[in-house]
Each structure stands twice: as structure tokens, then as C-alpha cells.
Amino acid sequence: MAKRYSSFRSGSTTWLLQRLTAGFLVVVLAFHFFNLHFVNHAYNIDFAGSQVRMQSLGYYVTMVLFLVTATFHGVNGVYNALVNQGIEGNAKRAAQLVLGVAGVLLIVQGIRVANALAGF
């Protein structure tokens, strides 16, 4: 049987954060689907309704946390998938840099949109 390899060291900070963000994302995704697909049906969702929801502090904070955790979880997952595939040296450093910059830009733009929707 082939040996299992993972770039995550069990018990490391990134290992723990990957699992914590996964748990948070499951809960927030359930909230999102319930709220935007069962309480408010897709054909009822419009820009004005999004603005009203984002003006609620609890909803705003939840969506910003959703953005940050989803970005971290995704970027960290892609990076570790690349490491698991054997990326090393300069290519590994370039992946860190590109994914890190992309993650920061995604979070900054997402917060800008959230602030615009919330009226900040």
C-alpha cells in the first residue's frame, strides 16, 4: 500500500486553522443556503435586499468572517495541494507569493463591496 503523504503536519497551526475554518464554513454555508434559498427564494433576491441585509451588523460581520475564512481555507488548501504534488524551491515560493497576494486582494475587494452594500 502506498504511503499517505500530506503537507499538513498534524497538530500544526495551519492544520488546526484548516479544520476550524472548515467547521465554520459548514455552519455559515448552511445559514447562507437556508436564508437565501429557503427563507428568501432566489427570484426574490435583489440589490436592495442585499443592502438591507448588509446593514444589519450581525449579518455584515458574519459575511466578512465568511469571506476571510473562505479565502484562507481556499488559498491554504490550494497551496497544500501544490506542496503535496511536489512543488519545491522557487516554484513553491512563487506559489506562496501569488496565492498570498491573490488572497489579500480578494479580501480587500470583498470588504470594499461589503462596506458599499452596508452603506459605510
Rank of each mutant, 00 (worst) to 15 (best):
82 L>E: 01
32 H>T: 11
63 M>A: 05
89 G>E: 08
3 K>E: 15
13 T>G: 09
6 S>T: 13
104 V>C: 07
41 H>D: 10
92 K>S: 06
37 H>E: 14
61 V>W: 06
103 G>Q: 01
120 F>E: 10
22 A>T: 11
69 T>Q: 01
55 Q>D: 10
65 L>T: 04
37 H>T: 10
27 V>I: 08
40 N>V: 15
17 L>E: 04
45 I>L: 13
16 L>T: 15
31 F>V: 14
83 V>I: 12
20 L>Y: 14
107 I>D: 03
103 G>R: 00
37 H>F: 15
26 V>D: 02
30 A>G: 10
53 R>T: 02
42 A>Q: 09
58 G>K: 10
56 S>K: 12
120 F>C: 04
11 G>Y: 02
23 G>T: 05
87 I>D: 00
54 M>Y: 07
26 V>G: 07
3 K>R: 14
111 I>M: 10
35 N>R: 15
119 G>L: 05
85 Q>I: 03
108 V>A: 13
113 V>D: 08
83 V>H: 03
86 G>C: 11
77 G>H: 01
99 L>M: 05
35 N>C: 11
106 L>K: 04
10 S>H: 11
70 A>P: 01
18 Q>P: 01
16 L>V: 15
84 N>S: 09
17 L>S: 06
65 L>I: 08
82 L>R: 02
101 V>N: 07
3 K>A: 15
91 A>T: 10
6 S>G: 07
71 T>D: 03
7 S>M: 06
64 V>W: 02
58 G>P: 06
34 F>S: 08
20 L>S: 13
9 R>P: 01
35 N>S: 15
71 T>H: 02
60 Y>L: 07
53 R>D: 03
80 N>C: 09
41 H>T: 13
24 F>Q: 03
1 M>A: 15
85 Q>H: 08
29 L>M: 15
2 A>C: 08
11 G>A: 05
42 A>P: 10
23 G>R: 04
104 V>Q: 03
111 I>T: 07
